[in-house]
């Protein structure tokens, strides 16, 4: 069997005296959607930041397709093919939609930014995404929550990533748009993309995820197969009411 797209082993991350992540393991395979769940402050967003290179891990090993890699800054993650939609979106407020989508990956023509081509591709990307198309030439600061989310998601899908990290991507979307986003995610998954999805909504997770990884107080608290596990079992792992029998069975 091919090695997982991404594997974390014993990842630790501290912020001062706070141990945000303790010996966390995680595997994401190509063509698989892994939901990451946990209570507030369980370390979900920290884990995303570790994988995306925003805050490098203090200890632990990260393997990309079986090969040990170091992700020390966002650039490293991007080079591997990891794209991220952050919870706060992390857009540049003063740039327009096109500028944000292509930031750091601009298209040039004779050494000059090719605004026309970038605008065309942005519109095309947003069109296939189908979440609605905001004014791509207005500063992002002037856009609504949904529109900003659209920009952030479009940005993450540019350049065909291998692994997509989505930190609460549905937060400001309406039901129709969530359904539409899930269609897109499923389509990408079927194309061999790996997805890590953070969500609070158990319904969403049941609808889209293949595996559910639970974090509790910065530690692993089980990995479950969505199709064979009841919602109650997952919830009790999230709040710490269950023992870890299931986890022992499926993590290996």
């Amino acid at each position: 069997m091919a090695p997982p797209l991404l594997a974390l082993r014993g990842v630790c991350k501290r912020y001062g005296a706070v141990r945000a992540l303790v010996d966390v393991d995680l595997e994401i395979r190509a063509g698989e959607v892994v939901a990451l769940v946990g209570e507030n402050a369980a370390g979900k967003s920290t884990l995303v930041k570790v994988i995306s290179g925003v805050d490098a891990a203090d200890r632990g090993m990260i393997a990309w397709q079986g090969r040990t890699v170091r992700i020390g800054r966002p650039y490293d993650a991007q080079t591997l093919g990891i794209a991220t939609v952050y919870q706060d979106l992390s857009l540049c407020e003063n740039l327009d939609g096109v500028g944000n989508v292509f930031l750091g990956r601009e298209i040039h023509r004779l050494g000059i930014l090719d605004e026309v081509e970038m605008e065309r591709r942005t519109l095309e990307l947003m069109d296939t995404l189908g979440l609605g198309t905001p004014d791509v030439r207005a500063p992002v600061a002037s856009l609504s929550g949904v529109q900003r989310q659209t920009v952030a998601i479009s940005r993450s899908l540019l350049g065909e990533p291998r692994l997509l990290l989505l930190d609460e991507p549905t937060a400001s979307l309406g039901l129709d748009q969530i359904a539409r986003l899930f269609d897109v995610i499923e389509h990408l998954r079927d194309g061999g993309l790996g997805v890590l999805l953070i969500s609070h909504n158990m319904g969403d997770i049941k609808a889209i995820a293949d595996q559910v990884a639970v974090l509790r107080l910065g530690r692993n608290n089980g990995v479950f197969d969505v199709n064979t596990t009841s919602q109650e079992q997952i919830t009790s792992a999230v709040i710490g009411a269950s023992d870890n029998a299931m986890a022992h069975r499926t993590t290996m």
Partner: peptide, 24 residues
Amino acid sequence: RTSYGRMVIALGGKGEGARRAGID
């Protein structure tokens, strides 16, 4: 009109946007 200029402007945006876009 250049990538360099775009990076400069992005850096002036509040928050981490520029760094998270992989800009040095």
